[in-house]
Amino acid sequence: MLRVENVEVYYGVIKAIKGVSFEVNQGEIIALIGSNGAGKTTILHTITGLISPKSGSIYLEDTDITKIPAHKIVSMGMAHVPEGRRIFQELTVYENLQLGAFIMKDKKQIEKNLEYVYKHFPRLKERKNQIAGTLSGGEQQMLAMGRALMSNPKILLMDEPSMGLSPILVSEIFQIIKEVSADGTTVLLVDHNAKKALSIADRAYVLETGKIVLSGDAKELLNDESVKKAYLGE
């Protein structure tokens, strides 16, 4: 589904990503874990074209998307829920969701996607006319996810969905990620809450200062001594 090959990213002269390769297969939930500054967000931004890599290639279903601008990526079936949610604060919930379907022309399909989003996030339906900036943090995260799902993506990139949320809300959000995955959407998940992320993921990659240092089955990594020490606080 998604293949990242030897990607290197620079911020000025600083090499932030040092040759990262990984693969996300159809239907999987893949977790990308690592501490702050490891480069998780940079990788997601590079995949969706918000940052261009210095070298390396990114393939979405065997199409090279490395040089494709960000605004064309979403119509290729990839949606990105950015870190910090970045919903349009001054617009209503409904308007935000409509913007999520910006690339779609088929009104019926948009209606169907809206139904789908409301089914998973009934709260958004209740608050559809509310200004998005007035939502709580959890609701804003739901809106960011709902907005991404409005484009009916084949693969969903999620950046720190648990950031700033209470444990109950985190569980709720992760439950929804599992549901979305069960509906057939492939998920690439980045989160500092490694335990939660590994618990729902099929496979995972561990990122350390711009390099992948460990990868494997998520359940195995959950029991890996070095992972436990470094990321699970055990």
């Binding site: 601008p69 960000a70 605004h71 979403v74 950015p82 913007l99 910006f102």
Partner: peptide, 9 residues
């Protein structure tokens, strides 16, 4: 940035 992620040019 978020606008681009929506597919807006």
């Amino acid at each position: 940035g978020a606008a681009q992620l929506m597919g807006i040019n």
